[in-house]
């Protein structure tokens, strides 16, 4: 059963795409992550051009994060003020990222750069998660107490434009969430990800936000960043395939619900190790694509 994708300009197997959405949704439900950082590389492995995969995945994340935001707004676990600062940075970063893709496509380097960024991000995050999970399993907890403030803490304290964020119960310079938002926005455009896998640890470790508002605020920021990326990619690069996004969404909605229910019965550290292994397998596959000789020593400039 095939469906023609008018923007990708090719046909795809519908059960495979819905199944892929289901698989990534299942993992995201099981491990509590967005899943975008797995979806785009898997789409690329199935032959979808990297630029179309990244842009369409952004569109799919709009739906996924809307759903999450709805639940968190009901539970009042979104720090809207912090979210807005991250969002301003995210929109600026997303705009920058879309322009960057345009330039990279004209240079014929978009696919290469997207793959390299993926390998670096997946490698870094996968390794970190694996070691953290193993440490936790061995019962060695990290001690975060330090004798005096770290360099990072002193640098953050020294920044001007301090603002209070009551829901997160922190006071911090507005520059920090803005800069972090820009960073995540660029990644969202380049990689077709919401950036939750970066934003969540950033909020916990760098912004020192309490855990109960982190996920909701991250989703709030991701929602608007991905709306911006979807509209810009559609307008400037014409790379958003809505039908592809819809198929992935159908699968991921169902998969996520199954994952959430199954995840409740598993231990967190085991889940973390399993997730890190999935991430590292995808990273290795992408890395091999970069270091093994390609089938043909010629490629289309700017993708198809």
């Amino acid at each position: 059963m095939h469906l023609y994708l008018p923007i990708a300009g090719n046909a795809i197997n519908v059960p495979i795409m819905v199944g892929l959405g289901g698989l990534v949704g299942f993992l995201s439900g099981l491990f509590g992550v967005g899943g975008g950082f797995l979806m785009t590389p898997l789409l690329m492995m199935l032959g979808i051009p990297a630029t179309v995969a990244a842009a369409s995945d952004s569109n799919q994340i709009v739906a996924a994060s809307s759903s999450g935001c709805y639940a968190h707004s009901c539970a009042r676990t979104i720090d809207i003020r912090m979210g807005l600062f991250l969002l301003v940075g995210g929109v600026a970063g997303g705009t920058l990222g879309v322009q960057l893709i345009k330039v990279l496509r004209s240079l014929g380097a978009a696919e290469f750069v997207i793959r390299v960024v993926y390998v670096l991000m997946l490698g870094g995050i996968g390794t970190y998660m694996l070691f953290e999970g193993l440490h936790a399993l061995r019962g060695r907890r990290k001690t975060v107490a330090v004798a005096r403030p770290s360099f990072y803490q002193r640098a953050i304290e020294a920044l001007p434009f301090k603002l209070s964020f009551p829901r997160s119960k922190i006071t911090i310079s507005a520059i920090v969430p803005l800069v972090l938002g820009v960073f995540v926005g660029v990644l969202a455009a380049l990689m077709g990800v919401g950036g939750g896998f970066i934003m969540v640890p950033v909020m916990i470790y760098l912004l020192r936000m309490p855990m109960h508002v982190v996920v909701g605020t991250s989703l709030f920021q991701i929602l608007f960043t991905c709306i911006n990326v979807t509209i810009l990619q559609s307008y400037m690069n014409h790379t958003v395939d809505f039908l592809l996004a819809l198929l992935l969404l159908l699968g991921s909605v169902i998969g996520a619900q199954i994952g959430v229910r199954l995840g409740k019965g598993l231990k967190g550290d085991q889940l973390k190790i399993l997730m890190s292994l999935v991430v590292l397998v995808v990273m290795v596959k992408m890395l091999l694509g970069l270091i093994l000789a390609p089938d043909f020593l010629i490629a289309y400039k700017g993708g198809h």
Binding site: N59, V62, S65, S67, F242, A245
Partner: peptide, 16 residues
């Protein structure tokens, strides 16, 4: 792009 985003939001809210 706007239509794709709006449809995704509606689908997401319905799912939620």
């Amino acid at each position: 792009g706007i239509a794709a985003s709006l449809i995704a939001i509606v689908v997401g809210l319905l799912t939620g």
